[in-house]
Amino acid sequence: MKDLGSQIAYWNGAGATKTFTHPVNPNWLAGVSRTARVLDYGCGYGRVMAELTGHGFSDVSGVDPSSALIARGRRLGPDLRLDVLTSPPALAHEAAVFDLVLLFAVLTCVPDDDAQRALVTELRRVLAPGGLLYVSDMVLQDDRRNRDRYAAHAERFGTPYGVFATGDGAVCRHHDIAGLRALLSDFDPVHERRIDVTTMHGHRSTAVQLLARAR
């Protein structure tokens, strides 16, 4: 799990058929210029990119390690600027070239602590000073089904509590909110909210969204 690309087979297979649902809160972006340079990291099939374009953002690009999801996005939105990320988390961009980076339901697909830190470090590198990082991801769920699978996976594999395997072959992670805040400790917090989402496997669950500013 230390390799961000270790689940590429899943995302080029079963994962490429999933529907993603985390919503953008346009109120959080009301003060962001519509010409801002925007990157959707882990863009999947471009759903969030299309939503941002619909809100008037004119310079939106997206990257994802899954060539199957990128191909799906190109079919659904031929005008979207989508590229396959070949060596995650490394981006083929100079430093400080984006004003806004979105990371929607990506950390849940990166269960390893070191890999998460490497990803956030890379996103900080490409954000301009004062730029915004918008994170949407899953928090620890308190129902019996989730508690049991967190505990089982931690006991079997020694993973952090909150990591679990799905029935169709993905390894995912739900997060302690304090851990997410610590992961973003090099940023200044702007907004935070809890939301209900439908997961890619059709369950209603609680997620958190955080907006943070690069120093």
Rank of each mutant, 00 (worst) to 15 (best):
Y134T: 06
G13R: 00
P23R: 09
H191Y: 15
S136Y: 05
V101E: 03
T21C: 09
P111M: 00
D64N: 13
W28K: 00
W11M: 05
D113G: 05
L107Q: 08
G44E: 04
R147Q: 14
I177S: 09
I177N: 00
N146T: 14
V208L: 14
F157E: 15
M200G: 01
P26R: 08
P23S: 11
D186Y: 01
G130T: 09
T199K: 02
T199D: 10
D79C: 06
D148C: 07
A154G: 07
N25Q: 12
L123C: 02
C43D: 04
H55S: 08
V48E: 00
L100D: 02
A30G: 03
E51K: 03
S33A: 13
N25H: 12
M200Y: 15
Q141R: 02
A214K: 11
L211K: 01
F187V: 03
L102W: 01
M138R: 13
I70F: 05
D99R: 04
A178I: 08
V38P: 01
A30K: 13
T108H: 00
L39Y: 09
T53A: 12
P160A: 13
T17A: 12
H153C: 14
V38E: 02
G77S: 10
F157V: 09
P160S: 12
L91M: 10
L52Q: 07
G62H: 03
G54K: 00
A14N: 03
Q209I: 08
S6A: 14
R193C: 12
T159E: 09
V110D: 05
E192Q: 14
K2N: 15
G44L: 02
C109M: 13
H191R: 15
L39E: 01
P23E: 10
H174I: 06
D142S: 07
D113W: 13
H191W: 10
V48I: 15
D137F: 06
H201S: 13
S185P: 00
L39F: 08
D64K: 04
R75P: 02
L4N: 08
D3A: 13
